[in-house]
Design a protein around this nucleic acid. Sequence first.
DNA 1: TTCCTTATTGAGATTGAGTCTCAAAGAAAT
DNA 2: ATTTCTTTGAGACTCAATCTCAATAAGGAA
Lengths: 141, 141
Amino acid sequence: MSKGLNRLKKILHHEGLRFTTQREAVWREIISSDDHRDADEIYMAIRKKGVSVSRATVYRTIDVLVKNNMVRKLDVGTGPSKFEHKIDTYHHDHIICIQCGRIEEFMVDQIEDLQDKVTQEYGFKLVRHIHQLFGLCKNCQ
Amino acid sequence: MSKGLNRLKKILHHEGLRFTTQREAVWREIISSDDHRDADEIYMAIRKKGVSVSRATVYRTIDVLVKNNMVRKLDVGTGPSKFEHKIDTYHHDHIICIQCGRIEEFMVDQIEDLQDKVTQEYGFKLVRHIHQLFGLCKNCQ
DNA sequence: TTCCTTATTGAGATTGAGTCTCAAAGAAAT
DNA sequence: ATTTCTTTGAGACTCAATCTCAATAAGGAA
């Protein structure tokens, strides 16, 4: 049994949505790798494995997964958004190489705490954040 | 004499670009307000003032300004990018209300320092960063 | 000033990511 | 098995942004 499949079923049920071949395939494809891939890459990978699915369905399913915290959407500044699953992972942010596109993950508790503090100071209720460091990786400098 | 106009002229000259009515108008429009506006809002404002300009030129000019550090591009997660001038301002990041779109600016030295540290640890050379807190403002909670 | 070279402009076409439409196919409840 | 209601998919569409290319304008030379 694939990781998180039950959780997916519960979520779909909870939202009054149906568990379908396509939705299962999208989820399986996303957890099959820890890479940061865009919707089209995920779409192509599913088709290559012989499952019939459309781009529209891939986008629609990813939306559900993102809303339900099983997948994270990553805006990398240029080109399509990328996605990563959130199974067995901790929260992290990203360092992105503006030359080769390489993506590294980082996490600093202190920064997270300071964020919370700032948000409170401004009277906001924090829902999510984007913290991305763009630069040149070792190889590209 | 409008703020930064000389700097704009120098930049254009340095890049082998010409100082034109349109480029001047775009710059004047952008520094005329501290708001965060998108390209179309800037375009409309210029036209309203009677200067003839096209959307293409507005986009092209903003690109030059962003590349030369006179204007900052702000990806607010949904819809068109927004822009703000960088004259007489200090570096800051943004808290954005996901309900009403209100944007507040914040700056925490400690976070900036931690960012530098993280980047170094990963062997990257930091070029720029995005740090955006999305949430609900006081009014929208 | 006028000439001349080269950059710029603008209207509209194009791109690209993502969303929408709607008829046909498929879940799930009874 | 029947009914009901959701989902799917091909392709149309949206929207921000970029590109095209003929007409226009900048600005250096003389």
